[in-house]
Nucleic acid binder design. Structure first.
Lengths: 331, 331
DNA sequence: TTGAAAGCGATACCAT
DNA sequence: ATGGTATCGCTTTCAA
């Protein structure tokens, strides 16, 4: 393992000079510079980031904790974050918590010891207060709220508005008997989405009817059957996210329902797969790209300025596709 | 930032002793031990991994370079790798190369400087020889072959066999006019898959007919149209992977073909989505879990033993689902 | 059992 | 412009 000293020796200069050449941190006599450059080539020297980080007290590491990648939404988010981090000279240490509280704790610990410059949390579990407060790294909660925001920044889409948009769209499509798949209420995203739905019901004097459903495909599959059983006359389903909507779609079709003629269907997230299934899914788009970028930016700013924005709510948009159909004169 | 010295001072012992307590690396007088433990609690001390790594010359970092996460196959692989790495006390630095040669080079460089203990490469570009040879980290190529294997380990599924399995299955299903979507031949996986197909053709005296297709959904969509145009009598399609098969399925249905009655369809990879679409996709399963585990193990073994297995080929299996249908007496 | 001290590899201040 | 040297935080000989 060749070090800066070896290079210095070979070039006949001091380590300081080698450092200066490498980092262009000061002027160096042209001749010596060339010698150093040559010596670096000759030895195949590669600076040790660990040592550099140790001295400079910045690791250029951003920790990312995702709940699990069953849901491509998090995968897409991770990808955006990686891209943005790379552009800014940061690297990304990826941890997946698998909905496992212990593993998540271990991950936060690990990132603290690694001297990560910040953590982007996408985990949906809200029972992690102490861990989060204890580690005093800047934390950005993405798509999730953390109760007593102690130096914790919070970036998320406008779930409330998204749900309202979706619900109103279903109404414009002429649905008379809408069923809501209710998000797990332990997540802030879930509470907000459900509240949006309820608010529209109140406005229009529509009865609130829902069935609880987790955010994943398997549960969507199970719950879809229940919906048809409990509400045989359903003509519109407001799914809690795209993965669930995809499962619901499958059940509907298997049971012989026509979509959107018999039952209209709308998702949430606009993951890539929502337009790959047979009938492209009408859904609410979260600005994934922007969310990822803002998260990285928040952490970088913290490193520089020492402060961090408290909460940022991003806009969502309705993406009309093939699982819903507007009918004239019915809004 | 509290350091080991602060703890030592507070506990009234030397830094060495604190270190010994933390790492249980030697016996320490019980009383002092308790004092140290207390001091750690009191100060909220967290050891600095950077410093530790620097001294111990091992970073416990595994670099993972994926081509892009459009294809969930890589996402699933990354997830398995993370899990296995975590179990063994390693962390994962994730890089996505986006099919960009420059970025990939930069990533390898970066991981070298970071003193990663190894790199798992899933990138499908084969023009990276020099970079790979220059950095002398242990490298594991996953799902991809690297020409002059210089300390490079190679783990991949048996693409050749997989293709043969798929082709034979289509024949057993009674297909008379099969079209192969040919994988990009710059990838070893592509070459092997195509060779498998050709070998079966030869065996059965069937004409080789194919159209070139990238590994992604968009290209699958485009190529599917071409297939129908060029081979209107097609009754079996051997897609190059699941993402493409999903695209093909969509085009077939949109054009009014019945699957599998009119056209049978088979994919490759068995990504999670292959069973989420309306008709579950018949496909060839790659042992994703095993591949990820082996990759991590290979790197760890290198760290310990200094050697690394040269090539490991894993078995694949046919997953019969709903886009093909066996007909009796036709094999 | 314990502490002092010498690194690990790079940086930056302080002289020169 | 350049070199010597202390330093980042931790680990590990080597003595005591």
């Amino acid at each position: 393992m060749t070090s800066i000293r070896d290079v210095a020796r070979l070039a006949g200069v001091s380590p300081s000079t080698v450092s200066r050449v490498m980092n262009q941190t000061a002027n160096v006599n042209e001749e010596k510079k060339q010698k150093v450059l040559w010596a670096i080539q000759e030895t195949g020297f590669v600076p040790n980031e660990l040592a550099r980080s140790l001295y400079k007290k910045n690791s250029k590491i951003i920790g990312v904790i995702v709940p699990s990648i069953d849901n491509p939404f998090f995968g897409e988010l991770a990808r955006v974050i990686e891209e943005e981090a790379f552009l800014n000279g940061y690297r990304l240490t990826l941890c997946s918590s698998n909905h496992n509280r212990e593993k998540e704790k271990a991950n936060i610990q690990m990132l603290t010891r690694l001297k990560a410059e910040g953590i982007i949390l996408m985990t949906n579990d809200e029972t992690l207060q102490e861990e989060i407060e204890k580690c005093n790294l800047p934390i950005v909660a993405l798509d999730r709220q953390i109760a007593s925001g102690n130096g914790v920044s919070y970036i998320h889409a406008d779930h409330y508005k998204g749900s309202r948009l979706a619900m109103k769209h279903l109404l414009e499509c002429g649905c008379k008997n809408i069923v809501k798949l209710r998000e797990p209420q332990v997540y802030s995203s879930g509470r907000q989405r459900f509240a949006g739905y309820v608010s529209v019901c109140k406005e229009y004097g529509i009865p609130v009817q829902y069935i609880d459903c987790q955010y994943d495909y398997e549960d969507g599959f199970r719950v879809a059957e229940q919906v048809l059983l409990k509400y045989p006359d359903v003509d519109g389903i407001l799914a809690n996210n795209d993965m669930v909507a995809i499962a619901v779609y499958k059940v509907l079709k298997k049971r012989g329902y026509r979509v959107p003629e018999d039952v209209q269907l709308i998702g949430f997230d606009n993951i890539a797969f929502s337009h790959m299934i047979l009938q492209e899914l009408t859904t609410i788009e979260q600005p994934i790209k922007e969310m990822g970028k803002l998260a990285v930016k928040a952490i970088m700013e913290y490193g520089q300025a020492g402060k961090i924005e408290q909460e940022q709510v991003l806009d969502v948009t309705l993406i009309k596709r093939e699982t819903t159909k507007e009918r004239k004169g019915l809004s």
